[in-house]
Nucleic acid binder design. Structure first.
Lengths: 155, 155
DNA sequence: ACACAATTTAGAATTATTCTAAAATGGCTC
DNA sequence: GAGCCATTTTAGAATAATTCTAAATTGTGT
């Protein structure tokens, strides 16, 4: 049964358009990050790094995979999101009490958090100027500065 | 030694002594916030609002209560921390993936998050200048801006 | 094709938190 | 202070997100 797809298991799942190009890009992206491009990881990467910035929880990503009929277990979604994060391909954003969002936008940016909808929105770094930072404690260096602009319903 | 500060519970104080004075202050604080000062709530308030800024998880607060031999159940600790937060007596800070910190410092300030120790430290607002903010989406108003300066081990 | 390492997986385990319904307490009125 | 009703507290069950585990599968070099 697998013989049919034979040498190229990658063709099994279909993106909308742009097959080969996107696939090449994604497998290369993973390889360059030292991550072996398995079927599951490629499917996830293809979905996540399609050029649209996404803020999603692991469960949401898993649901998207189900919908796309790509067999990727929840455990693998968690593992892979963590790997991608560690490789710097995406970020984790923790804002809501018990929800971790994975953010595929790795450009310098900040966030609006809309308390009425629970949604997260990007704010390009250029729209926030931080003109002064405190002196860092000894023996530590700056990892990054997260700015979350919390919004509530207003006039 | 404490009579001097008497009327101002905000003043930096050492915990330990000052029973009567502190009690009056605390019950008043609760009443002014529309919270009935029961035994448990008073015990928690006394511990939390002793003048020292604290960043604690609910479990940690519960542990402190046990140590102080004050019978307060975990459920009550959760309930009460939420009430206090809603009344504006303290804030919630969410940073670490699955840990909610309650912060007794309600002055304008920001945080260092030390990734190596998992600890949170205050940064007075004056040490961080945000000189530009984006235009807010329609129908929303600013609740607050949280700045978390993430630190990692460095030279 | 073969073997060995890496990966995936289902389901169990863990952890922080919330819920529930019963017991205790607080604040009234008489 | 006894009686009463609303509020609060509580132990333990329930939930939800995440991690762990150990077995099955897949990938890769030979």
């Amino acid at each position: 049964m697998r013989a049919i797809i034979g040498h190229n298991w990658r063709m099994k799942t279909k993106p909308q358009h742009d097959h080969s190009a996107k696939l090449l890009q994604v497998t290369e992206l993973l390889q360059r990050s030292g991550i072996r491009p398995t079927r599951q990881r490629t499917a996830l990467a293809r979905y996540l790094f399609d050029g649209c910035d996404k803020h999603m929880t692991a469960e949401q990503v898993h649901a998207a995979m189900r919908k796309a009929k790509t067999g990727v277990s929840l455990a693998t979604v968690y593992n892979t999101l963590h790997q991608f994060t560690e490789a710097g391909l995406m970020h984790q954003v923790v804002i809501d009490s018990n929800r971790v969002y994975f953010d595929t936008n790795i450009h310098d940016h900040h966030h609006f958090f809309d308390e009425t909808t629970g949604m997260l929105h990007d704010v390009p770094a250029k729209h926030v100027h931080i003109s002064r930072l405190p002196k860092l404690p000894a023996g530590r260096e700056l990892d990054r500065v997260d700015v979350v602009i919390r919004l509530r319903a207003g006039k």
